[in-house]
Amino acid sequence: MITATLNEYIILSVVLFAIGFFGVLLRKNTLVIFMSLELMLVASTLGLVAFSRYNHTLDGNVFVFFIFTVAAAEVAVGLAIIVALFRKRHTIQVDELNALKN
């Protein structure tokens, strides 16, 4: 049986988080940015579960349920805003959404 160590889980979690973070900063499509945001949350959940398993505390596992709930609420509101904005502006590319200026 292959068992991963805590460090491997944490490195994976950090890598996933970094992919999500740079995805948010660099991608231009709002939906891809949104996916990257979810990836960051999932990376945090992986870290929580791994720490919870290796530190023998249950808090982390319980926290994951709260994070899932929050992420679901965020997606519900976020997609609603994106759809409403697409109806008005017919684009979801962030560099074209620049009507707010001085």
Binding site: L37, I82, L85, K88, R89, L100
Partner: peptide, 12 residues
């Protein structure tokens, strides 16, 4: 559209 754009920026 301005309110929605602000909402999207705040969301991201």
């Amino acid at each position: 559209p301005l309110s929605l754009e602000a909402g999207l920026k705040y969301l991201i």
